[in-house]
Computed example of a mutant assay.
Amino acid sequence: MGHVPYSALTLIGSTDLLRSYLNGVYRDKFGMAFIGEWRYMFLNKMKDMSKVGIVTWLGTGSIGNSFEDFQNWLPNGGVGFRYEVQPRMNVGVDFGIGKNSKGLYFNFSEAFYQLKRIQIF
């Protein structure tokens, strides 16, 4: 609240939150986002989990000068591919789609422990 430096404003639309929107475009004092993600690891010939999987997600988010300003919600969804390099370390490719926006991401991370994500467009 009050005077907030630009770099400290709430941000939605990044490699982590609402993938497909350019990083830094949507900023304001208040923000809220909801994302549901589903992951599936394929089985190998021995019926054990393989190192290959897929992911899909749906989400939405909004920002504003106050909570009352949450009127324009940004939709978001996408699909991705995961390959487990070692336990709890995945290499992935994600493609996200939003309102008049899309993005392709390469990431080297686990869902709750991020090492590096790169936005292509």
Rank of each mutant, 00 (worst) to 15 (best):
V25G: 04
V4H: 14
G59Q: 06
F67Q: 13
Y83E: 01
S50A: 06
R27T: 08
M49A: 14
Q114P: 07
R82M: 03
K116M: 15
Y6C: 15
L17D: 14
G61V: 00
F106P: 03
F34K: 15
S109I: 00
G80D: 01
G53V: 04
K45A: 12
N72D: 09
S101K: 05
T15H: 15
G36W: 08
Y6I: 12
Y21G: 05
S7H: 12
T10M: 13
S62A: 12
A8Y: 15
S50Q: 07
D16C: 13
F81G: 03
M1C: 13
F112D: 13
V52L: 14
T60P: 03
I118S: 07
D69I: 00
K47G: 10
G31W: 04
G24R: 05
L43M: 07
I97V: 07
G59P: 05
G53A: 05
P75L: 02
P87M: 03
V25F: 08
N23H: 15
E84K: 03
L22N: 12
T56I: 13
R19N: 06
I54E: 07
H3F: 13
G92K: 04
Q119L: 10
Y113N: 14
G98W: 00
K116T: 08
Y113M: 14
T56D: 09
N90G: 01
F81Y: 04
Y40R: 14
P5I: 04
Y26L: 06
E110M: 01
M46P: 12
N107A: 12
S109V: 01
K45W: 09
T56K: 15
V55N: 11
G92A: 06
V52R: 10
Y40F: 11
I97S: 03
G98A: 01
T10P: 08
S101F: 02
D16Q: 10
M1F: 11
K99R: 14
I120P: 10
D48K: 11
L104M: 02
G59Y: 06
F42E: 05
V93N: 02
V52Q: 06
L58Q: 12
L58H: 09
S62L: 02
Q114E: 15
G53P: 03
E84T: 02
R27Y: 06
P87T: 01
K116W: 13
Y105T: 07
W38N: 14
E84R: 05
S14Q: 04
G64W: 00
F30A: 05
